[in-house]
Design a protein around this nucleic acid. Structure first.
Lengths: 213, 213
DNA sequence: TTCAATAAATGAACATGTTCAATTGTTTTT
DNA sequence: AAAAACAATTGAACATGTTCATTTATTGAA
């Protein structure tokens, strides 16, 4: 049983499960937001969702998995919005900035939740929600790789670079900037995006002195 | 009382504390290596160190802090070796590759331990060991910034870039590559370093097409 | 040396994530 | 409809990180 199976079918059993899943997601998110991930207990989540403690573990393999049960839905929607926002035939820097902008705006609405997410996603391999989460990230990196290849084909970027690696570098820089941004006390979206764009511009322009002595 | 105070002085009390601290470090490291961080219990650590459970918490604020109690010593030594290995007046790429090489070789000797470290260091703000750890990172970024500034002054790098941000980008890329490297099953040092160097070379050369249409 | 003051160590008690054998609810078969 | 098969739910029991009131050890003063 994977999460995608929950809610399929039309019998009473399926309806009950879909409803419980929804209540678990809602309760978890509310409590994580109100009190923080570490301060929220599984018992509280169960109580607010109106189910027994043990039932949670039918829907999530552990507490960390709950974070991604919540986030995976958002990630899907964010990816959709983000990919749609990429301007065609625009400078490469504009394109990748546009791609990451919706993520920054979303994370701004829940910085505390996002910090826990960034901590827990490191080497997140086990758990029911892990495959879906990792697939989401792969899909973002893949989209960046396509942008790199398109920009290379249209001579906006220099040829010869390994597109997969370049895409991973861009995603790595994004993550690094995101962490720095969220480490600050009151991070404004504009400031974070400005720094991110600066990093991309430096990567695009390169560090080497063109005089090349 | 901070860790740096432990072991100072010459009285019996100071000697006892220094000795206990050493035993705690040894036991923690052995057990983390043998069974993994998550699988090691505080009770096991206490038993092997020959102290009571509660005593550990005089030396580390929590379990995570134990990881950094162990790592901070290594980080100091690694930094020393790493900084000394940087060739002067060499190409910038050679310099930053040399700086990170000792870290890769060290992490190769304990990949499991390192994975836990990378997970737990995200937003590691509380805990007795946090200030020392964060200071170590700042010191590495500072050294990179100096290299950037030296290379810019000697015309190896193009002028006009914000050196602090460039240094943070390089450190961010290193972290990102390190995570990818350690995500693999049997990561060889050479492979990891080759990829890291490729990333640095791309950053140095830039992505933009110099034909610049 | 004796005594007070301080520091350190102790482990029982507690809090909370997780497991699992037993129970309840739903679906399918006859 | 009754029975059998299957799925989902339950919460007590367990495992383990952490706290803290109590005890023990060390130091410095009288």
């Amino acid at each position: 049983m994977t999460e995608s199976d929950i809610g399929t079918g039309t019998g009473r059993r399926a309806r009950n499960k879909a409803d419980k899943l929804r209540r678990i997601k809602e309760s978890s998110y509310e409590l994580f937001s109100e009190k923080g991930y570490d301060q929220t207990t599984m018992r509280e989540i169960a109580a607010r969702a109106g189910i027994a403690l043990g039932t949670i573990f039918t829907y999530a393999s552990d507490k960390r998995d709950l974070l991604f049960l919540i986030f995976n839905d958002r990630q899907d929607e964010l990816r959709r919005v983000s990919f749609a926002a990429i301007p065609e035939n625009a400078p490469f820097g504009d394109q990748i900035e546009a791609l990451f902008t919706p993520f920054y705006y979303h994370f701004y609405t829940e910085p505390a939740f996002t910090r826990y997410l960034l901590r827990e996603l490191t080497f997140f391999k086990n758990g029911i929600q892990s495959p879906r989460f990792q697939e989401g990230r792969r899909s973002i990196v893949k989209r960046i790789r396509e942008l790199v290849e398109e920009a290379t084909a249209s001579d906006r970027l220099t040829p010869g670079n390994p597109s997969q690696h370049v895409a991973e570098m861009i995603f790595g820089l994004y993550q690094s900037e995101l962490r720095l941004w969220l480490s600050g006390d009151n991070p404004a979206v504009k400031d974070g995006l400005k720094r991110l764009r600066e990093a991309f511009d430096i990567l695009i322009a390169g560090l080497a002195n063109p005089r090349g002595d």
